[in-house]
């Protein structure tokens, strides 16, 4: 780990002032990703600004029925919160599907949004990686890429975004509140993440001096759930995950939100599938058609082509279970 100066910020104003004044500074929350990246010399800040003492730990109900979550609410607390469990099961389940209890106790909401990829070539200083060293190439293309992306990829990068929580937030139309010395702004999650294109090292819309202060989630009335498919029964990153909310009225889909994890450089909102589903009968055929529409542009590699089929099957299975539930069909084992 490269030595760094440590500053503990007592309040938001100080935090954003310090970060604006230091050219190569990073905020640290729970540290679960940043400490690892610093230990691997992938992140090498000169200054680390500790924000864990900032008063951003509230979960509040919003007047319009939504919820505002402070950026420093820890993942475990968010997942366990009554409002989240009852109104946004998809969000609670997504968080609980990620990492381990210990990590969820440490990790913050803001930090989770900024998780970096687990691509092994990104982590290996001896490998070529455009994300780590722009212009150096991509060893994952032509290398081991079983866990890599099939949607939104470029010739420069096929890494995935590793978060589960963010997949649910993508489905929920969340908004990210960010603050800097220039003031406060709100970025819809849909605009928060960037696709790799020719600049895979640029991952979000966040400026280097901006601090995530909260995430807002609008009201959700449709039943929702999160399904994660992985190589172990627990404590593994997603091969494919699906965050879904589905309202079925008289056998017809009247509201649907769908997002995918493990398949793209960002939490992937499945707009194509939603368009197919809205107004369509809630049947396996519709679900399959919607899934096919979403994965139509997918690009597979030798190791990860299976994700295209797996994603479609997981979409269908997740929607089927939600649909069965809203039709009152008994849950399957």
């Amino acid at each position: 780990m490269k030595p760094f100066a440590y500053v503990s910020a007592p309040d938001v104003a100080t935090a954003v002032r310090v970060i604006a004044a230091e050219p190569n500074a990073k905020f640290i929350g729970g540290g679960t990703n940043l400490v690892d990246l610093m230990r691997e010399d992938i992140e090498q800040p000169d200054t680390v600004v500790d924000i864990t003492r900032l008063p951003l730990t509230e979960i509040e109900e919003l007047p319009g029925g939504g919820v505002r979550v402070g950026a420093l609410v820890r993942n475990s607390h968010l997942a366990a919160h009554r409002l989240i469990r009852t109104r946004y099961p998809v969000l609670s389940q997504a968080i609980l599907a990620g990492a381990s209890a210990q990590l969820r106790n440490m990790a913050t909401v803001g930090g989770n949004l900024l998780q970096r990829t687990r691509c092994p070539y990104f982590y290996d200083g001896a490998a070529a990686c455009n994300k780590r060293v722009p212009g150096s190439g991509c060893d994952a293309i032509g290398g081991f890429n079983r866990n890599h992306a099939v949607l939104g990829v470029s010739d420069d990068c096929i890494a995935t975004h590793p978060s589960d929580m963010c997949v649910a937030l993508a489905a929920l139309d969340a908004t990210v509140e960010v603050q800097s010395v220039r003031g406060l702004r709100r970025v819809p999650l849909a605009d928060f993440y960037r696709l790799p294109g020719g600049t895979p090292h640029l991952e979000t819309a966040l400026e280097p001096d901006e601090l995530i202060t909260a995430v807002e989630v609008p009201e959700l009335t449709a039943p929702s759930s999160y399904r994660k498919v992985r190589d172990r029964a627990s404590y593994a990153f997603a091969l494919v995950s699906v965050a879904a909310a589905l309202e079925v009225t008289d056998g017809v889909v009247t509201d649907v939100r769908l997002a995918l994890g493990g398949v793209a450089a960002k939490p992937w909102r499945a707009r194509q599938a939603e368009a197919v589903l809205l107004g369509a009968p809630a049947t396996d055929e519709s679900f399959r058609r919607a899934a096919e529409a979403e994965l139509e542009p997918a690009v597979g590699r030798p190791d990860n082509t299976f994700k295209i089929e797996l994603a479609q099957r997981t979409i269908v299975a997740t929607l089927r279970r939600l649909s069965d539930r809203s039709l009152g069909v008994g849950r399957m084992a």
């Binding site: 687990r118 092994p120 290996d124 490998a127 290398g143 081991f144 190589d231 172990r232 029964a233 627990s234």
Partner: peptide
Amino acid sequence: MNPGLGDYHVPV
């Protein structure tokens, strides 16, 4: 390329 317990999956 997977020299760690996060990527080499021993049973949990």
